[in-house]
Design a binder for these strands. Structure first.
Lengths: 207, 207, 207, 207
DNA sequence: GACTAACCGAGACGGTACGTCCCGTCTTAAG
DNA sequence: CTTAAGACGGGACGTACCGTCTCGGTTAGTC
């Protein structure tokens, strides 16, 4: 998301200025922008958040924001991921049932530690803006997909589930249920929900 | 959704104009607004859709829009429901498995007949604006919930599934998976998906 | 300068909206804008005058300014001409010498009643922006030209000056000297200057 | 105009760097800046000329411009005087009439060799910015004043014109007419104009 | 030959203003 | 009482420049 001038050496996105020329990016400004964004977001909601307010509150020129992020959605995304624990450990207990159980528990716990309105706003942006979708997808969706995929593949190898299992649908099942409850608040986001869901999934998939 | 001035006699929000006095509402304008909204929405996306453009393209005064709808989200919602078949028949085959199968097939077929970007935009609005959430929820979510609820209750009565089944989580499972695939395009929205999903759900819930 | 909707019936500039439709232009805003512009102009000078400050100080949306004027130069021009006496009476005494004397005295008196920085700013704009030049020229230059032209033609008819007199150069002589003194403050702008200049001009032109 | 670091020893504005230390000023950059400025000025006009564009087009850091000039007006002034012949020879023919004739012809010829938009821009700046006025005045106005002054004084000494002649007004007459025609393009800037003007002036002043 | 001072390009910085778009409201005449 | 038209005050947009600052590097004279 940021035009990190050196870290992405091989990526060749922006014209790639000869490294280390000119005044370096201000870390202080970067942090101020992200902090202020989160604060305003929590206080006033996503719709009331504007680039202008962020700039004013962070004591920063608007251009400085636009230089490093393309939209408020990207600012919020980075602000959010910087503060939220986005790592998803891959459980590998040796059994499908307990792997799923742990994965779902982890995710449920993660959802509990996160600002629901903020995540909803990010998800809304994802649904509308296909540019943003990629950025959000990489960070929030792809990683989790990978983890579940690994679990399913291991279960297949161990013959705990059929090798003909429709993996994609299984993933919709797990993540769909989790996001549905989270986004629409159809019920509590707790350990009990996690375990009931795990039961359904394991029985359904192992079927 | 519309503040139909007479039909909602008891609601008493707006000053409640004395019944049939003055110039009547222009049906031509109403239709033009809804048609134009859909067209612009498909063409340019939700973000680029503005009240001003709708008014201009429909040859209508802005006030006329604001008199009957509170926001562009409400216009779009009405425009959408006017064109989309939103009825969900309640399957009652006498067996849990086939009920679920039919429900899911129906919904999948419905999703296939609908403009994905439009529905995504409406869902996005739902996630951000709690006012809008109600309107959308009533039309789009609640109905379907009721149908599934009925199916589950009947299955419990028939002892096909446990009376301790976590109904709410079961509903997250079904609708979560469906919405997840639809919103994020994680795979095709076809008969095969419907049936695989139905398998998972029935096995999962029936245990 | 303003898009006077009816006064310019035959001119066919802007699409010519069917008269009297929509909310009429706010006279209060128009006046506030002009007054505030003059005040800020006198206080801070032309360079420090911005559309944004005018809007803020006049309690007016920026768009309202842009709707009726194309640039701050045009606002200032109208503000200025509204307050400054721009009428130039045509002396007709029957004799070249006294006509010239009166004309020059009138203009000198006029210059004395006017804010020099403001006029300098307008003249500067004229030199830079050819669009603006026309507007300014019509109001400030053309009228005076006409008056002098009439005087010269009458003098030729009366044979007070040669019929081969280079009229254009004569006009440069008169207005050049007046503007030069005014713009560059090369000396006092008083009765004595007026009369000395009239002497030079009459002797020079009458030869 | 340039803050030549040593030439103005006694001025003591900037901390007064110890004489010839450090890297010397880049002549290449200086020339590039001046050339590019003129070119852009001719092409796009004064308003569209910005420090940033100059720097970019000259392949120069902005700071380098600001180090040596205080404003774009100063850059343009130097760019202009570097290319334009600004010398004004003092005619001394022994007779008032022929002195005036030659002076005016010289100036007219000079005006003909110069970019009118550029000079207009400089004059405009002069009218607005009193700081700049001095710089421009020294180079462009004062010299010419001196020349005319000398001519008039000699004419008085020779009793060709009265010793009570209003010298200042006479100067407004000559330079006013010249500038008026040049700035406002009220007619051709040629030999004929020069001679007609000279006639008027000589008759008027000698009157 | 190392040191140091002043320059150089590049380009990010906090700001201000630009001119445009849209918001939701208001004010006309017309129906 | 609604309608189309369209002006209104307001706010945010994304861009252009302002003049300053801060990098790594360069080019001289001085130690």
């Amino acid at each position: 998301m940021t035009r990190a001038p050196s870290a992405t050496a091989g990526r060749a996105t922006t014209p790639a200025p000869r490294a280390n020329r000119g005044r370096p990016r201000s870390e202080a400004s970067r942090v101020a922008i992200l902090n202020v964004s989160l604060k305003l977001l929590e206080r006033d909601g996503y719709k009331a958040l504007t680039m202008e307010k962020i700039a004013r509150a962070a004591g920063v020129g608007k251009q400085t924001i636009y230089r490093w992020w393309r939209s408020k959605a990207e600012v919020v995304l980075e602000a959010f991921t910087a503060y939220a624990e986005t790592e998803v450990p891959t459980p590998d207990t040796g059994a499908f049932r307990s792997d799923i159980e742990r994965l779902i528990r982890n995710i449920v716990r993660g959802f509990g530690q996160v600002s629901a309105p903020t995540v909803r706003a990010l998800m809304a942006e994802t649904l509308i803006d296909s540019e943003f979708r990629k950025a959000f997808g990489e960070i929030f969706v792809a990683r989790r997909q990978t983890v579940l995929l690994a679990i399913l593949h291991r279960a297949i190898k161990r013959s705990e589930i059929s090798e003909h299992t429709d993996v994609r649908t299984a993933m919709d099942l797990v993540y769909g249920a989790l996001w549905h409850r989270f986004l629409h608040e159809t019920g509590p986001m707790n350990r009990n929900f996690a375990d009931r869901l795990a039961d359904f999934v394991v029985d359904g998939v192992a079927g």
